[in-house]
């Protein structure tokens, strides 16, 4: 079967759903963070596919910006996770409830 725009969109949907389920199901903050990266990358695939099939560079620019934001997010998020892990031994996000969230 020759891939077209909708096949890329369906791959992207599958990856996004996997990331969503991972965020909701897993309790390890590092794995939740990786699932967020998976969701970001599935959206990037959508942007690149639309950019190709609409033959416009706007989607590629968006992917470039998303990569920059994701790099910044990873830096801050991992610093937060490391500082949380330093102050407490438990790694279950269900137990991080000091702020009663």
């Amino acid at each position: 079967m020759t891939p077209d725009a909708s096949s890329y969109l369906i791959i992207s949907a599958i990856l996004f759903t996997l990331g969503t389920v991972g965020v909701l199901v897993r309790r390890d903050p590092l794995i939740i963070f990786m699932c967020i990266e998976l969701m970001l990358n599935s959206v990037n695939l959508t942007f690149v596919a639309f950019s190709h099939y609409l033959s416009s560079a706007d989607g590629l620019i968006f992917v470039f910006m998303i990569m920059t934001v994701a790099a910044a997010e990873v830096v801050v998020g991992l610093a937060l996770i490391v500082s949380i892990f330093r102050t407490r031994e438990d790694i279950d996000v269900d137990q991080l409830d000091e702020m009663h969230g």
């Binding site: 096949s7 791959i11 996997l18 199901v25 897993r26 794995i31």
Partner: peptide
């Protein structure tokens, strides 16, 4: 495609 989806399953 198959490897990407398998990797996604592996992440979760």
């Amino acid at each position: 495609t198959v490897l990407a989806v398998l990797g996604g399953i592996g992440v979760v």
